[in-house]
Design a protein around this nucleic acid. Structure first.
Lengths: 326, 326
DNA sequence: CCAGCTCATGGTATCGCTAACAGGCTCTCC
DNA sequence: GGAGAGCCTGTTAGCGATACCATGAGCTGG
């Protein structure tokens, strides 16, 4: 920086000002400095800047498994929003979902002086991990429950599940089975709640809950069991990958979709329209959730104490895997 | 740090040593310092450390679309390896794949004093972006070609495609059609080359190349066209998602898989075993690629000039979408 | 008993930048 | 024409750590 200052015939302070508050420098001086910056290919040292300002322009994301479609898409949304605002994103992935690791992840990021942290761990353990946060560190949660001490951006799982369930009932099905995600996942329990509430509101029997682990494999295994129950005519599956396994199991066992059984998924992965049959599902706009989370975080970093929750509405996408009850 | 030093009755310098070179401090003193560290919940300020040492413990990843299965899995592998070595990962995603953006992504990371950069952009433009790198910055590429000026970790696409093609020929098919990924993607051209070379080596006709864009949609559209060509009995598709579209198109047009047409995919996404029919495909161990890339980068950071290329072998996974030619 | 070594620790300078204040210049306006 | 208000720009100090060298204690060996 000293060199740039010398080349431009000004002091280091002026160079600093050109970079941080250009309007405070006379245009002519500014031009000379910028020319010198280019000439020497000068780049400010962010470590030094962080040291004195305390702000780094980096935000941290704590996440679990970024190969899952939802978290990966959310992360991507966050990254895009961050790029547009000249933030950089550091990620701390967790080997397991529990309080200890979440706390450790946040610590790891904090030690790098991130300006804020977004936690993408839609699991009950996240709540514990967010209980006693280091004071002064802005934190936002993605997909968490309502009882968190931090702002939350999330898709309204309850509403999405309710829509899926109502759709099936409206086709004439007596009731709807639900294959849920693993217990303790916030998304999973939100979908269970939405499903159950619609059945209860409509006075339908609430059948036994089935529990998978998000994988197509678990959908397939549980689907085989379901295929043996002749009174099952409508299944709401908690994500598209499990739904894919269910579709295959039903087909193998000779039950036609949608003639014999209707199936609804959740997520609307890009491939859902190419399942056999094309899958009716609930679209979640993960990218939008990521962007909302980033906005919430920006607000907190700026000292805002405003909104604590931003819900993104899911959308039912009707394709060919659902049909009227026989 | 001063406070810790005082509480432990030592100088700041000793505290620093306890944290960076514990063996140089008498065990007894070390214990006192560590106790003080815990008591005050002291955390070193990484910015200050970076300022003086020049090393940050952060590595950067430049990537394109982290919602794609391959890049997401690779990123995850890198992150896991990094965590195990106490590195943090910053990501810079690119709005478009070209020289300018890649350079800008690297610059963005460099301005944060990352210790090294891994570029996950298996596209020809990456090569240009890697031509004139800032000197002194260790860079490793993932999935790039052979002519890069930096070390590369990659899956051997050529070998994988060759295996897939030979598998189809061994089932008695006269020749094999190939639906490739978009031009200029390294993976895509590697697979094309492997496919073509086997056909030529076996003296088979090399049919016109078909080109998709990695999406199930493009697979579906091109699959519909292929379904009309009765002499097509074997298709090697450049990724599983496109293969899924092809499967659906063939089915819709009344062509049975594998009885009439055999289909092989590439990637082995977790769902491939639940396609209809279960997809024969080429498994790529993306996680391993990520880990190898990280190892290469660590080596470069440490000043190594060793190996420039680490190939990960893909594996043919035979399922039910391929069968003997009629 | 002391030169000469090792080992543990401390003092000081410095990394590159910006906050806070200081000062000089121009301009306005009575 | 001079006080006062702006506007630019410069000077100084310090952010929190580590590199480097100095220092003193304890030990070895002739």
């Amino acid at each position: 920086m000293e060199d740039v200052a010398e080349l431009a015939g000004v002091s280091a302070m002026t160079v600093s000002r050109v970079l941080n508050a250009p309007e405070k420098v006379r245009p002519e001086t500014r031009a000379r400095v910028l020319a010198a910056v280019r000439e020497l290919d000068y780049r400010p040292n962010s470590a030094a800047r962080v040291l004195v300002t305390g702000r780094s322009g980096v935000l941290g994301v704590v996440c679990f498994d970024t190969t899952l479609y939802g978290p990966a898409s959310t992360l991507f949304g966050i990254e895009q929003a961050a790029r547009d605002s000249d933030y950089l994103v550091s990620i701390a992935s967790l080997p397991a979902l529990n309080r200890t690791w979440i706390t450790r992840g946040i610590d790891r990021l904090r030690s790098q002086s991130v300006d804020g942290v977004i936690v993408v761990a839609p699991h009950e353990s996240a709540a514990e991990g967010l209980r006693n946060l280091p004071p002064g560190l802005p934190v936002v949660d993605v997909g968490g429950g309502t009882d968190l001490p931090v702002p939350v951006a999330a898709v309204d799982q309850y509403a999405g599940a309710a829509r899926a369930t109502r759709h099936l009932l409206s086709l004439g099905h007596r009731t709807v089975r639900h294959l849920s995600g693993p217990p303790n996942w916030i998304d999973a329990s939100g979908r269970v709640a939405g499903w159950r509430s619609v059945l209860e509101a409509e006075g339908r029997e609430v059948p036994e809950l089935l529990v998978g682990d998000w994988t197509a494999y678990s959908g397939y295994e549980i689907g085989k069991r379901l295929a043996h129950e002749p009174d099952v005519t409508a299944i709401f599956v908690a994500n598209d990958h499990m739904a894919m396994g269910v579709l295959r199991a039903l087909r193998e066992m000779g039950r036609r979709v949608p003639e014999d059984v209707s199936v609804v998924g959740f997520d609307d992965v890009p491939e859902a329209a190419y399942f056999w049959p094309p899958l009716t599902t609930v679209r979640q706009n993960f990218g939008e959730v990521g962007r909302q989370a980033f906005q919430l975080l920006l607000d907190r970093i700026a000292g805002g104490e405003g909104e604590a929750r931003r819900m993104v509405e899911p959308e039912l996408v009707v394709r060919e895997s659902t049909g009227v009850s026989r």
